[in-house]
Amino acid sequence: MTAAARLAALDTMPAEILCQEAETALSALVDVMNAETTLLRAGRMRDASQLTPDKTRLAQDYVGFARAIQRVEPRLRLEAPNALDRLRQGHERLATQMAENLKVLATAKTVAEDVLSDVARKVGQQDRARTYGSAGVVATDPSAAARGIAVNRAL
């Protein structure tokens, strides 16, 4: 089926069915984002990353339905106003879940950066010579600082 045919099929779908399909995709997306947020809060990054393919597919599905709904909104307002209202409420739940998800992701990123900075600092301290300079303080040689660390990105 061509893209034009898929768009036409969505645009001519009965109002209630279109809204129901969008609501189903939206609900599944909110659920997977909630699961991801829960896993991230628990520090289970690897498990959370397993949800990425599902989240991506569900987001694409929902965006396709949302665009179709925007194209035929006047018809939906006439034929299925209650279904359209439910969909708007669901979209608000998605926005709330996305905000929470982004907040948890930002926190996880900050924690990871802090851990990496602490490790780099400790590695750099271990490499420094512990001798006193002419001023009677421990000399710091910037060239002895950590030159980098390896990070396992599979996590």
Rank of each mutant, 00 (worst) to 15 (best):
A135S: 14
S143D: 14
S27I: 07
V104P: 01
A48G: 01
A145K: 09
T12Y: 10
N34P: 02
K122C: 13
G133C: 14
Q20V: 14
A15P: 06
Q60V: 03
P74M: 11
A120H: 10
E16Q: 09
L84E: 11
L78Y: 09
V32P: 04
T131Y: 14
S143T: 06
V104C: 08
S27W: 14
C19W: 12
A80L: 12
R41F: 00
T12F: 07
A95R: 12
E21P: 12
L40E: 00
D11C: 04
R6H: 04
A42R: 01
A146K: 09
Q125A: 07
P74I: 12
E92C: 08
A135N: 15
N101E: 04
V104Y: 00
A15H: 06
P53A: 05
V32Y: 01
T110E: 12
R93G: 12
A59E: 05
A129M: 03
A146R: 04
T37G: 01
E92V: 05
P14T: 08
A112Q: 13
V115P: 05
A146L: 15
D31L: 03
N152G: 07
A35P: 03
V30I: 07
T131N: 15
Q89N: 11
D127N: 11
S143M: 11
A120L: 13
L40F: 00
E73R: 14
T110F: 13
A120S: 11
D54P: 01
T56W: 00
P142E: 02
E23S: 12
Q50P: 07
P14D: 02
A139K: 13
K103L: 05
P14C: 04
A15T: 00
R128C: 06
M33N: 07
Q60A: 11
R88C: 12
D54K: 05
T56P: 00
A5L: 03
A42P: 01
A28T: 05
V63C: 10
S49H: 08
V63Q: 07
Q89F: 15
N34W: 01
L76Y: 08
A42T: 01
R121C: 10
L78G: 07
Q97G: 00
G124R: 03
R147L: 13
T2M: 04
T140L: 06
A9Q: 15
R67V: 10
A5Q: 04
E21A: 10
A139H: 11
F65P: 08
D141T: 05
R121A: 06
Q20N: 15
S143A: 15
D114W: 11
V32E: 04
